[in-house]
Design a protein around this nucleic acid. Sequence first.
DNA 1: TTGAAATTTCAGAATAAATTGAAATCAAAG
DNA 2: CTTTGATTTCAATTTATTCTGAAATTTCAA
Lengths: 187, 187
Amino acid sequence: MGISDTALHQQGLTASKDAFINHWGEMGTSWGVPRSMAEIHALLFIEGRGMCTDEIMDRLQISRGNVSTTLRQLAEWGIVTRARQRGDRKDYYEAEQDVWTLLSLIVRARKRRELEPLLAALAEAKHLAPIPSRDDSKAEKQAQKDHLKRLDSMDDALKRLDRLSDRFIGRGGKGLDVAVRLLASLL
Amino acid sequence: MGISDTALHQQGLTASKDAFINHWGEMGTSWGVPRSMAEIHALLFIEGRGMCTDEIMDRLQISRGNVSTTLRQLAEWGIVTRARQRGDRKDYYEAEQDVWTLLSLIVRARKRRELEPLLAALAEAKHLAPIPSRDDSKAEKQAQKDHLKRLDSMDDALKRLDRLSDRFIGRGGKGLDVAVRLLASLL
DNA sequence: TTGAAATTTCAGAATAAATTGAAATCAAAG
DNA sequence: CTTTGATTTCAATTTATTCTGAAATTTCAA
Protein backbone atom coordinates (compact mmCIF):
# COMPACT_ATOMS: atom_id res chain seq x y z
CA MET A 1 0.00 0.00 0.00
CA GLY A 2 1.42 3.34 -1.11
CA ILE A 3 1.01 6.76 0.43
CA SER A 4 -2.39 8.36 0.31
CA ASP A 5 -3.60 10.71 -2.39
CA THR A 6 -3.58 13.65 -0.02
CA ALA A 7 -0.03 12.88 1.04
CA LEU A 8 1.00 12.71 -2.59
CA HIS A 9 -0.51 16.06 -3.31
CA GLN A 10 1.07 17.57 -0.23
CA GLN A 11 4.47 16.25 -1.15
CA GLY A 12 5.53 19.31 -3.09
CA LEU A 13 4.05 21.69 -0.58
CA THR A 14 5.87 20.02 2.28
CA ALA A 15 9.13 19.90 0.35
CA SER A 16 8.85 23.59 -0.34
CA LYS A 17 8.11 24.37 3.30
CA ASP A 18 11.00 22.23 4.44
CA ALA A 19 13.37 24.00 2.09
CA PHE A 20 12.25 27.34 3.49
CA ILE A 21 12.61 26.17 7.08
CA ASN A 22 16.04 24.68 6.53
CA HIS A 23 17.48 27.73 4.84
CA TRP A 24 15.94 30.12 7.33
CA GLY A 25 17.43 28.08 10.13
CA GLU A 26 20.77 28.08 8.40
CA MET A 27 20.74 31.82 8.03
CA GLY A 28 19.79 32.23 11.65
CA THR A 29 23.07 30.73 12.79
CA SER A 30 25.14 33.28 10.91
CA TRP A 31 23.11 36.06 12.52
CA GLY A 32 23.66 34.77 16.01
CA VAL A 33 20.20 33.20 16.27
CA PRO A 34 20.06 29.56 17.41
CA ARG A 35 19.14 27.29 14.57
CA SER A 36 16.15 25.85 16.37
CA MET A 37 14.76 29.30 17.09
CA ALA A 38 14.99 30.30 13.47
CA GLU A 39 13.44 27.01 12.43
CA ILE A 40 10.54 27.31 14.80
CA HIS A 41 9.86 30.79 13.58
CA ALA A 42 10.12 29.71 9.95
CA LEU A 43 7.70 26.87 10.56
CA LEU A 44 5.11 29.10 12.18
CA PHE A 45 5.50 31.71 9.48
CA ILE A 46 5.22 29.34 6.57
CA GLU A 47 2.33 27.37 8.06
CA GLY A 48 0.48 30.57 8.81
CA ARG A 49 -1.69 29.01 11.51
CA GLY A 50 -1.54 28.39 15.23
CA MET A 51 0.51 25.37 16.26
CA CYS A 52 0.99 23.71 19.63
CA THR A 53 4.20 22.54 21.25
CA ASP A 54 3.78 18.89 20.32
CA GLU A 55 3.17 19.55 16.67
CA ILE A 56 6.28 21.72 16.49
CA MET A 57 8.34 19.10 18.34
CA ASP A 58 7.22 16.37 16.00
CA ARG A 59 7.70 18.32 12.84
CA LEU A 60 11.14 19.72 13.65
CA GLN A 61 12.44 16.99 15.94
CA ILE A 62 13.23 19.45 18.69
CA SER A 63 12.94 18.78 22.42
CA ARG A 64 10.03 20.03 24.48
CA GLY A 65 12.23 22.19 26.67
CA ASN A 66 13.81 23.86 23.70
CA VAL A 67 10.48 24.55 22.02
CA SER A 68 9.01 25.97 25.21
CA THR A 69 11.91 28.31 25.90
CA THR A 70 12.24 29.44 22.33
CA LEU A 71 8.55 30.13 21.92
CA ARG A 72 8.57 32.28 25.00
CA GLN A 73 11.44 34.36 23.63
CA LEU A 74 9.81 34.78 20.25
CA ALA A 75 6.65 35.89 22.01
CA GLU A 76 8.64 38.39 24.09
CA TRP A 77 9.95 39.96 20.92
CA GLY A 78 6.43 40.10 19.54
CA ILE A 79 7.30 37.90 16.59
CA VAL A 80 4.88 35.18 17.59
CA THR A 81 1.60 35.40 19.43
CA ARG A 82 0.27 32.99 21.98
CA ALA A 83 -3.37 32.01 21.82
CA ARG A 84 -5.67 29.57 23.49
CA GLN A 85 -8.14 27.57 21.47
CA ARG A 86 -11.59 26.98 22.88
CA GLY A 87 -12.01 23.71 24.75
CA ASP A 88 -8.30 23.00 24.47
CA ARG A 89 -5.80 23.14 27.25
CA LYS A 90 -2.81 23.62 25.03
CA ASP A 91 -1.21 26.89 24.03
CA TYR A 92 -1.12 27.67 20.34
CA TYR A 93 1.37 30.01 18.76
CA GLU A 94 1.31 31.83 15.49
CA ALA A 95 3.81 34.01 13.71
CA GLU A 96 3.43 37.59 12.51
CA GLN A 97 2.52 37.29 8.85
CA ASP A 98 3.35 40.73 7.58
CA VAL A 99 6.97 40.72 6.51
CA TRP A 100 7.65 44.41 7.15
CA THR A 101 6.14 44.21 10.58
CA LEU A 102 8.27 41.15 11.18
CA LEU A 103 11.45 42.91 10.13
CA SER A 104 10.53 45.89 12.28
CA LEU A 105 10.07 43.69 15.30
CA ILE A 106 13.42 42.03 14.72
CA VAL A 107 15.19 45.36 14.33
CA ARG A 108 13.48 46.72 17.40
CA ALA A 109 14.53 43.77 19.53
CA ARG A 110 18.15 43.91 18.38
CA LYS A 111 18.30 47.64 18.84
CA ARG A 112 17.29 47.26 22.46
CA ARG A 113 19.51 44.36 23.22
CA GLU A 114 22.57 45.52 21.32
CA LEU A 115 22.58 49.06 20.02
CA GLU A 116 21.54 50.65 23.27
CA PRO A 117 24.16 48.89 25.41
CA LEU A 118 26.75 49.88 22.83
CA LEU A 119 25.77 53.52 23.09
CA ALA A 120 26.09 53.27 26.84
CA ALA A 121 29.55 51.78 26.36
CA LEU A 122 30.59 54.66 24.13
CA ALA A 123 29.45 57.10 26.77
CA GLU A 124 31.58 55.24 29.28
CA ALA A 125 34.62 55.33 26.98
CA LYS A 126 34.15 59.07 26.51
CA HIS A 127 33.91 59.48 30.24
CA LEU A 128 37.18 57.61 30.73
CA ALA A 129 38.99 59.66 28.10
CA PRO A 130 41.53 62.04 29.62
CA ILE A 131 40.89 65.74 29.71
CA PRO A 132 43.89 67.61 28.26
CA SER A 133 45.77 69.29 31.07
CA ARG A 134 48.32 72.12 31.12
CA ASP A 135 51.31 69.82 31.45
CA ASP A 136 50.49 67.39 28.66
CA SER A 137 52.87 67.57 25.74
CA LYS A 138 51.65 68.79 22.39
CA ALA A 139 51.72 65.25 21.02
CA GLU A 140 49.69 63.95 23.93
CA LYS A 141 47.09 66.63 23.52
CA GLN A 142 46.79 65.78 19.84
CA ALA A 143 46.39 62.08 20.63
CA GLN A 144 43.67 62.83 23.13
CA LYS A 145 41.89 65.04 20.65
CA ASP A 146 42.08 62.41 17.90
CA HIS A 147 40.82 59.76 20.27
CA LEU A 148 37.78 61.76 21.24
CA LYS A 149 37.09 62.48 17.61
CA ARG A 150 37.00 58.76 16.84
CA LEU A 151 34.67 58.03 19.72
CA ASP A 152 32.44 60.90 18.69
CA SER A 153 32.21 59.88 15.06
CA MET A 154 31.16 56.38 16.07
CA ASP A 155 28.76 57.72 18.64
CA ASP A 156 27.19 60.15 16.18
CA ALA A 157 26.62 57.50 13.55
CA LEU A 158 25.10 55.00 15.95
CA LYS A 159 22.92 57.62 17.60
CA ARG A 160 21.66 58.67 14.21
CA LEU A 161 20.74 55.09 13.38
CA ASP A 162 19.14 54.75 16.77
CA ARG A 163 16.92 57.78 16.28
CA LEU A 164 16.03 56.77 12.74
CA SER A 165 14.96 53.33 13.83
CA ASP A 166 12.84 54.84 16.58
CA ARG A 167 10.94 56.76 13.97
CA PHE A 168 10.50 54.16 11.34
CA ILE A 169 10.14 51.14 13.46
CA GLY A 170 8.17 52.71 16.23
CA ARG A 171 4.52 51.82 16.70
CA GLY A 172 2.62 50.49 13.78
CA GLY A 173 4.97 48.31 11.85
CA LYS A 174 4.59 49.63 8.34
CA GLY A 175 7.15 52.35 8.99
CA LEU A 176 9.98 50.29 7.60
CA ASP A 177 8.01 49.53 4.49
CA VAL A 178 7.32 53.22 3.98
CA ALA A 179 10.95 54.16 4.57
CA VAL A 180 12.22 51.63 2.06
CA ARG A 181 9.71 52.68 -0.58
CA LEU A 182 10.56 56.30 0.03
CA LEU A 183 14.26 55.75 -0.39
CA ALA A 184 13.78 53.63 -3.47
CA SER A 185 11.68 56.31 -5.10
CA LEU A 186 14.22 58.99 -4.33
CA LEU A 187 16.92 57.43 -6.45
CA MET B 1 60.21 53.43 41.19
CA GLY B 2 56.72 54.27 39.92
CA ILE B 3 55.44 54.34 36.39
CA SER B 4 56.76 56.99 34.05
CA ASP B 5 55.17 60.36 33.49
CA THR B 6 54.17 59.42 29.98
CA ALA B 7 52.58 56.22 31.21
CA LEU B 8 50.66 58.17 33.80
CA HIS B 9 49.33 60.54 31.21
CA GLN B 10 48.41 57.72 28.91
CA GLN B 11 46.55 55.91 31.65
CA GLY B 12 43.20 57.49 30.91
CA LEU B 13 43.67 57.21 27.19
CA THR B 14 44.46 53.52 27.41
CA ALA B 15 41.59 52.87 29.79
CA SER B 16 39.22 54.55 27.38
CA LYS B 17 40.57 52.54 24.44
CA ASP B 18 40.30 49.34 26.42
CA ALA B 19 36.72 50.07 27.33
CA PHE B 20 35.90 50.63 23.67
CA ILE B 21 37.69 47.45 22.59
CA ASN B 22 36.03 45.33 25.24
CA HIS B 23 32.51 46.49 24.50
CA TRP B 24 32.99 46.27 20.76
CA GLY B 25 34.24 42.72 21.20
CA GLU B 26 31.29 41.92 23.39
CA MET B 27 28.85 43.21 20.83
CA GLY B 28 30.57 41.25 18.12
CA THR B 29 29.62 37.98 19.75
CA SER B 30 25.93 38.78 19.72
CA TRP B 31 26.20 39.57 16.01
CA GLY B 32 27.88 36.31 15.15
CA VAL B 33 31.34 37.84 14.92
CA PRO B 34 34.11 36.13 16.89
CA ARG B 35 35.14 38.20 19.85
CA SER B 36 38.77 38.35 18.80
CA MET B 37 37.85 39.59 15.34
CA ALA B 38 35.75 42.39 16.76
CA GLU B 39 38.51 43.24 19.21
CA ILE B 40 41.20 43.39 16.58
CA HIS B 41 39.05 45.63 14.48
CA ALA B 42 38.23 47.85 17.45
CA LEU B 43 41.90 48.15 18.31
CA LEU B 44 42.90 49.17 14.79
CA PHE B 45 40.01 51.61 14.59
CA ILE B 46 40.65 53.29 17.90
CA GLU B 47 44.41 53.46 17.43
CA GLY B 48 43.98 54.92 13.99
CA ARG B 49 47.42 53.87 12.80
CA GLY B 50 49.06 50.89 11.15
CA MET B 51 49.88 48.05 13.51
CA CYS B 52 51.81 44.84 12.95
CA THR B 53 50.91 41.33 14.05
CA ASP B 54 53.15 41.30 17.10
CA GLU B 55 51.85 44.54 18.51
CA ILE B 56 48.26 43.31 18.15
CA MET B 57 49.14 39.96 19.75
CA ASP B 58 50.76 41.66 22.70
CA ARG B 59 48.06 44.19 23.26
CA LEU B 60 45.11 41.83 23.01
CA GLN B 61 46.76 38.60 24.15
CA ILE B 62 45.65 36.74 21.08
CA SER B 63 47.62 34.01 19.32
CA ARG B 64 49.60 34.62 16.16
CA GLY B 65 47.52 32.22 14.11
CA ASN B 66 44.30 33.87 15.17
CA VAL B 67 45.58 37.37 14.43
CA SER B 68 46.86 36.31 11.02
CA THR B 69 43.63 34.61 9.97
CA THR B 70 41.41 37.35 11.32
CA LEU B 71 43.38 40.12 9.70
CA ARG B 72 43.13 38.44 6.35
CA GLN B 73 39.36 38.22 6.66
CA LEU B 74 39.00 41.82 7.71
CA ALA B 75 41.14 42.80 4.73
CA GLU B 76 38.96 40.68 2.43
CA TRP B 77 35.92 42.63 3.57
CA GLY B 78 37.76 45.87 2.98
CA ILE B 79 37.47 46.92 6.60
CA VAL B 80 41.21 46.97 7.16
CA THR B 81 43.98 47.72 4.72
CA ARG B 82 47.34 46.06 4.56
CA ALA B 83 50.39 48.22 4.04
CA ARG B 84 54.11 47.82 4.02
CA GLN B 85 56.33 50.29 5.77
CA ARG B 86 59.62 51.21 4.09
CA GLY B 87 62.62 49.31 5.33
CA ASP B 88 60.43 46.95 7.33
CA ARG B 89 59.58 43.42 6.44
CA LYS B 90 56.42 43.25 8.49
CA ASP B 91 52.89 43.86 7.26
CA TYR B 92 51.05 46.70 8.88
CA TYR B 93 47.28 46.92 8.98
CA GLU B 94 45.02 49.86 9.53
CA ALA B 95 41.27 50.17 9.84
CA GLU B 96 38.88 52.24 7.78
CA GLN B 97 38.38 55.43 9.78
CA ASP B 98 35.20 56.77 8.27
CA VAL B 99 32.31 55.29 10.20
CA TRP B 100 29.77 55.38 7.38
CA THR B 101 32.19 53.75 5.00
CA LEU B 102 32.84 51.16 7.67
CA LEU B 103 29.15 50.44 8.13
CA SER B 104 28.72 50.22 4.37
CA LEU B 105 31.50 47.69 4.09
CA ILE B 106 29.98 45.59 6.86
CA VAL B 107 26.55 45.68 5.26
CA ARG B 108 28.00 44.83 1.88
CA ALA B 109 29.87 41.82 3.24
CA ARG B 110 26.84 40.46 5.09
CA LYS B 111 24.59 41.04 2.14
CA ARG B 112 26.84 38.91 -0.03
CA ARG B 113 27.36 36.18 2.48
CA GLU B 114 23.82 36.01 3.82
CA LEU B 115 21.15 37.89 1.98
CA GLU B 116 22.06 36.58 -1.45
CA PRO B 117 22.11 32.91 -0.44
CA LEU B 118 18.77 33.44 1.24
CA LEU B 119 17.28 34.86 -1.95
CA ALA B 120 18.57 31.83 -3.79
CA ALA B 121 16.92 29.64 -1.18
CA LEU B 122 13.61 31.39 -1.65
CA ALA B 123 13.84 30.83 -5.37
CA GLU B 124 14.41 27.15 -4.68
CA ALA B 125 11.42 26.98 -2.34
CA LYS B 126 9.26 28.61 -4.98
CA HIS B 127 10.51 26.14 -7.52
CA LEU B 128 9.58 23.25 -5.26
CA ALA B 129 6.11 24.60 -4.60
CA PRO B 130 3.40 22.54 -6.30
CA ILE B 131 1.56 23.89 -9.30
CA PRO B 132 -2.20 23.59 -8.78
CA SER B 133 -3.53 20.81 -10.96
CA ARG B 134 -7.04 19.94 -12.13
CA ASP B 135 -7.58 17.21 -9.58
CA ASP B 136 -6.49 19.11 -6.48
CA SER B 137 -9.29 19.81 -4.08
CA LYS B 138 -10.44 23.34 -3.48
CA ALA B 139 -8.76 23.36 -0.07
CA GLU B 140 -5.50 22.15 -1.51
CA LYS B 141 -5.52 24.79 -4.18
CA GLN B 142 -6.10 27.43 -1.55
CA ALA B 143 -3.24 26.11 0.59
CA GLN B 144 -0.92 26.19 -2.39
CA LYS B 145 -1.95 29.70 -3.22
CA ASP B 146 -1.44 30.90 0.34
CA HIS B 147 1.93 29.23 0.50
CA LEU B 148 3.15 30.96 -2.64
CA LYS B 149 1.88 34.24 -1.31
CA ARG B 150 3.97 33.87 1.82
CA LEU B 151 7.08 33.01 -0.12
CA ASP B 152 6.47 35.92 -2.45
CA SER B 153 5.96 38.45 0.30
CA MET B 154 9.22 37.42 1.93
CA ASP B 155 10.98 37.39 -1.40
CA ASP B 156 9.68 40.84 -2.33
CA ALA B 157 10.77 42.42 0.92
CA LEU B 158 14.24 40.93 0.84
CA LYS B 159 14.74 41.76 -2.82
CA ARG B 160 13.75 45.32 -2.11
CA LEU B 161 16.31 45.56 0.68
CA ASP B 162 18.85 43.95 -1.61
CA ARG B 163 18.34 46.51 -4.34
CA LEU B 164 18.30 49.38 -1.89
CA SER B 165 21.58 48.34 -0.39
CA ASP B 166 23.11 48.02 -3.84
CA ARG B 167 22.30 51.62 -4.44
CA PHE B 168 23.29 53.15 -1.18
CA ILE B 169 26.21 51.00 -0.35
CA GLY B 170 27.57 50.62 -3.83
CA ARG B 171 30.91 52.18 -4.69
CA GLY B 172 31.95 55.19 -2.74
CA GLY B 173 30.96 54.64 0.84
CA LYS B 174 29.11 57.80 1.72
CA GLY B 175 25.87 56.46 0.28
CA LEU B 176 24.67 55.18 3.62
CA ASP B 177 25.40 58.50 5.26
CA VAL B 178 23.41 60.28 2.58
CA ALA B 179 20.52 57.85 2.87
CA VAL B 180 20.30 58.23 6.61
CA ARG B 181 20.43 62.04 6.46
CA LEU B 182 17.82 62.02 3.73
CA LEU B 183 15.43 59.88 5.72
CA ALA B 184 15.98 61.86 8.87
CA SER B 185 15.19 65.09 7.08
CA LEU B 186 12.03 63.69 5.58
CA LEU B 187 10.37 63.11 8.91
C1' DT C 1 71.19 30.72 -3.64
C1' DT C 2 70.88 31.03 1.41
C1' DG C 3 68.94 32.09 5.73
C1' DA C 4 66.60 35.12 8.87
C1' DA C 5 62.12 37.03 9.45
C1' DA C 6 57.56 36.98 8.64
C1' DT C 7 53.16 34.80 7.50
C1' DT C 8 50.05 31.00 6.88
C1' DT C 9 48.01 26.68 7.89
C1' DC C 10 45.60 23.41 10.42
C1' DA C 11 45.10 19.50 13.84
C1' DG C 12 43.98 19.43 18.36
C1' DA C 13 42.59 21.86 22.71
C1' DA C 14 39.78 25.02 24.95
C1' DT C 15 35.72 27.45 25.19
C1' DA C 16 31.17 28.75 24.43
C1' DA C 17 26.51 27.84 22.95
C1' DA C 18 22.62 25.14 22.14
C1' DT C 19 19.91 21.21 23.26
C1' DT C 20 17.98 17.53 25.85
C1' DG C 21 15.03 15.32 29.13
C1' DA C 22 13.23 14.49 33.33
C1' DA C 23 11.66 16.55 37.60
C1' DA C 24 9.21 20.41 39.39
C1' DT C 25 5.64 23.51 38.78
C1' DC C 26 1.43 25.23 37.28
C1' DA C 27 -3.49 25.30 35.62
C1' DA C 28 -7.90 23.83 34.31
C1' DA C 29 -11.66 20.41 34.70
C1' DG C 30 -14.04 17.41 37.32
C1' DC D 1 -9.52 19.20 46.66
C1' DT D 2 -7.43 16.00 43.24
C1' DT D 3 -6.30 14.50 38.94
C1' DT D 4 -4.64 15.03 34.52
C1' DG D 5 -2.46 17.47 31.03
C1' DA D 6 0.48 21.12 29.89
C1' DT D 7 4.41 24.14 30.62
C1' DT D 8 8.68 25.56 32.71
C1' DT D 9 13.12 24.97 34.58
C1' DC D 10 17.75 23.68 34.70
C1' DA D 11 21.81 20.40 35.39
C1' DA D 12 23.99 17.51 32.32
C1' DT D 13 25.23 16.58 27.73
C1' DT D 14 26.07 17.34 23.12
C1' DT D 15 27.38 20.08 19.46
C1' DA D 16 29.56 23.90 17.30
C1' DT D 17 32.80 27.49 17.31
C1' DT D 18 36.84 29.73 18.36
C1' DC D 19 41.58 29.75 19.56
C1' DT D 20 46.24 28.06 20.05
C1' DG D 21 50.81 26.92 18.79
C1' DA D 22 54.13 24.71 16.34
C1' DA D 23 55.36 23.12 11.74
C1' DA D 24 55.32 24.32 6.96
C1' DT D 25 55.60 27.83 3.79
C1' DT D 26 56.61 32.15 1.86
C1' DT D 27 59.31 36.41 1.34
C1' DC D 28 63.03 39.12 0.67
C1' DA D 29 67.64 41.07 1.62
C1' DA D 30 72.17 39.94 1.29
